[in-house]
Each structure stands twice: as C-alpha cells, then as structure tokens.
Amino acid sequence: MGSAHMNDRERLTVAFFYCRNIPESGETERQALEKEYGPSIRLFPIPCSGRLDPVHLLSALEKFADAAYLIACPEGACRYFEGNRRAGKRVERTKEMIAMIGLEPERLGMVINTKKRPKGLGVITAEILERVKSLAPSPVLKNSRVEEEKPL
C-alpha cells in the first residue's frame, strides 16, 4: 500500500480550484477523486480561471488548506480569452502577500495545463500533490489542529 506515501498525503490538505474546461473534470470524476484521496484534497470547480478571486485562495489557506492551487487551461486555450494570464498575475501577487507574513509562497500556485494532449484533472492533482508533499503542515492551522486533536 506504500504507507509512507499515504501518510504524506494525509498530513496535508490541498485545495484545488480548477477551470471547468479541464479534461476529465466532470462531477463523476470529481467524486471519484474525492473518494480516492479523502480529506487530503478539496476540489472547487470554477467557470474560468480568470474568475478566481485571490481571496478564495487566501480563505482556503486561512480555514483548512496547507496549500491552494489553481488549475488553468493552456495559454491561448482560455474560453474567455485571457482569463488564465490574468489569473497567473493575481496568483503571483497573492504569493507575495503570504510571503510577507512568513508563509512559504509555494503554498500557493497555478498550474497551466499542457496545450498538446491536455492532462485530465486526476493527473494534474496528483502532480501537484507530489510537488507540495515536502511542505510542513501550515503554521496557520497549527492551533486549530491542536484543538481538533484534543478529544483523542
């Protein structure tokens, strides 16, 4: 079962905001992924990555996530023209903001799908989970985690 790997996954919760145009990102696929990963992922479909308000990334970090990622369509493939490019700039700015309070900027990110043979949602989420697995649990959530752990 590769238990070390499972522990890594269980340690962190990652929020994914993804553009609905990403392949294999329908309702059934979403449910299957949630079942597979359990509480270590939270999936939020959005109509276009350009619609993502950085406040959503921040509230994910504030409330439950150790990392929050935006998954966007390839450059030039955005249905709403330039949504993904603008989103990229906003994510960069939001990373700078969290860095100013001492959070690792890697807790936020944006992944742009490949143009040739675009990947499905499951593949991209797995890649991102791999990328963030070396992060420590978020210091923002440490106190709430302690509270949650008390009853045990």
Partner: peptide, 19 residues
C-alpha cells in the same frame, strides 16, 4: 470589498501564526 477581504484574511493568518 475584494481587497478588504484579502487584507483581513492575511492579518488573521498572521495572528494565528503568532498564536
């Protein structure tokens, strides 16, 4: 509203990190 939400969120996170 957006900027206010972001600033409040950042400040809450900073406070939580400092306990």
């Amino acid at each position: 509203e957006k900027e206010t939400g972001m600033l409040a969120s950042i400040l809450r996170m900073a406070a939580k990190m400092e306990g």
